[in-house]
């Protein structure tokens, strides 16, 4: 009898669990949600130290300013260039995984995997320091290039505005290429060996096995990551660009995130900085939603 009633009452709730979770929810609210409410600052002429209610309401003025600001256009251009390069290079980790997979010598494989994944765990400050040691005007590689007759002594790539796009891309690859290939290595190790045997029986060589068995097995992962990256393409982050920015590279290296930093925290124009962030967030979220819809159309299931 008793059991029957217990089943009839649909899953009893335990309010104790709610009370236990609430402090954590409060932390999420305080540190993740309250800043989103801070978006209203974009509609006021915010003066630090004055409560919002006493600030002048300016409506969409700051958003209109974005449309006429040449710097926004320039940093958007830089952001888009970096994004397009990174999208073009996005199959590289997959290629590295295939090439790494062909190495059957255990210690060599271990050596390569260990050292290619490690830079991912090194901070950008340290990478900046390493880059300075190698590429500054008194750096090692700068010296090599000068002795080979490429470039003048004292010339440094760190101060070259023309080299910004590909040089920063290379640094990013150096840091994360090996790490990004791990997920594909995992996909490869999940392939059923029987598939290879079947392909061999059909007369496929190593190359054809890679093309017809390994590659398709990785495509699912590739597509998921690709779609997630599209949503992220305006979010380049600040660290790398801020470190490598100097008076000579400023015009090409300044991405949107960095411009927001300059406007908001260096020029103390909080409201305008928030306005740009808001637009950026809205665009990013729309991209994620659109990419997700496309994924649903193509694959029949969403990514997120």
């Amino acid at each position: 009898m008793r059991q029957k009633t217990a089943l009839a009452i649909k899953r009893p709730k335990d309010y104790k669990l709610l009370w236990m979770a609430l402090p954590f929810i409060a932390v999420v609210f305080l540190f993740s949600y309250v800043p989103i409410f801070g978006w209203i600052y974009a509609f006021f002429d915010y003066v630090p130290g004055v409560s919002v209610t006493k600030c002048d309401f300016v409506g969409w003025d700051y958003f209109k300013l974005i449309l006429t600001d040449a710097n926004v256009l320039r940093s958007l251009k830089n952001t888009v260039i970096f994004a397009i390069i990174s999208i073009c290079l996005s199959p590289l980790p997959m290629l590295l995984a295939i090439l790494m997979n062909e190495i059957r010598n255990g210690p060599v494989k271990k050596f390569v995997q260990t050292f290619t994944t490690m830079p991912n765990f090194i901070s950008w400050v340290i990478i900046f320091s390493l880059a300075t040691a190698l590429f500054a005007s008194d750096g090692l590689i700068t010296g090599w290039l000068a002795s080979l007759g490429v470039g003048k002594t004292g010339d440094t790539i760190l101060a070259s505005n023309d080299a910004v796009y590909w040089f920063q891309t290379c640094l990013g690859l150096w840091k994360s290429l090996g790490w990004n290939s791990i997920i594909y290595m995992a996909a490869i190790s999940g392939i059923d060996q029987e598939q290879y045997e079947a392909a061999r029986v059909d007369g496929a060589g190593y190359f054809k096995c890679a093309l017809h068995v390994t590659l398709p097995a990785m495509m699912e992962t590739f597509v998921v990551l690709f779609i997630l990256n599209i949503g992220n393409f305006l979010n380049t982050g600040y660290e790398q660009y801020m470190l490598f920015k100097n008076s000579l590279t400023a015009t090409n290296i300044e991405v949107l995130d960095l411009y927001v930093y300059r406007i908001g925290l260096q020029n103390m124009d909080y409201s305008y900085g928030v306005a740009i962030s808001v637009v950026k967030s809205v665009v990013s979220i729309s991209l994620v939603v659109i990419a997700n819809l496309i994924a649903k159309k193509i694959r029949g299931k969403t990514v997120i």
Binding site: I36, Y270, G273
Partner: peptide
């Protein structure tokens, strides 16, 4: 919170 955040400036104002 994985997909949306206030951004650097709004977060700074809130921390302040």
């Amino acid at each position: 919170t994985m997909y949306i955040n206030g951004g650097m400036i709004a977060t700074y104002i809130v921390m302040k």
